[in-house]
C-alpha cells in the first residue's frame, strides 16, 4: 500500500516537462531549484485539496470522499493559491 516508501513527491522530470509544456515562449526554461520548489508546491496543493475534501466529507458524515466534496471545496481552494 501507499505510505510504505518515503514521502510521495512529484518527479522533478515530470514537473519540468509540464512547466515547459505550458510556457508560451519556447525559449523560457526552468532552473533546477525552481523545479524542485514547484514539485514541493504542487505537493502542498494536492495535500491541501485532499485535506479540505476530507473535511467536507467528514462534515457531511460520509466515509468516502466523493466528487461532490471536491466540487464544494474547489472555489475556495483556487482562491487560496
Amino acid at each position: 500500500m501507499a505510505g510504505a516508501g518515503p514521502e510521495t513527491i512529484f518527479k522533478k522530470e515530470t514537473v519540468s516537462k509540464v512547466l515547459t509544456l505550458f510556457f508560451k515562449d519556447d525559449k523560457t526554461k526552468a532552473s533546477n531549484d525552481a523545479v524542485s520548489l514547484m514539485a514541493e508546491m504542487l505537493k502542498i496543493f494536492v495535500i491541501e485539496a485532499a485535506q479540505r475534501a476530507m473535511k467536507q466529507a467528514e462534515n457531511e458524515d460520509s466515509l468516502g470522499v466523493d466528487l461532490e466534496h471536491v466540487e464544494k471545496v474547489l472555489p475556495q481552494l483556487l482562491l487560496d493559491f
Binding site: M1, A2, G3, T8, K43, V46, I47, A50, Q51, A53, M54, A57, E58, L63, G64, V65, D66, L67, H69, V70
Partner: peptide
C-alpha cells in the same frame, strides 16, 4: 492518487476514483 491515498489512510477515509 498516491498522495490522496496517504492522506486518506491517516484519517480512515477513502477517495472515490472520480474524486
Amino acid at each position: 492518487g498516491r498522495l490522496c491515498q496517504q492522506a486518506a489512510a491517516d484519517h480512515e477515509r477513502e477517495f472515490s476514483r472520480q474524486a
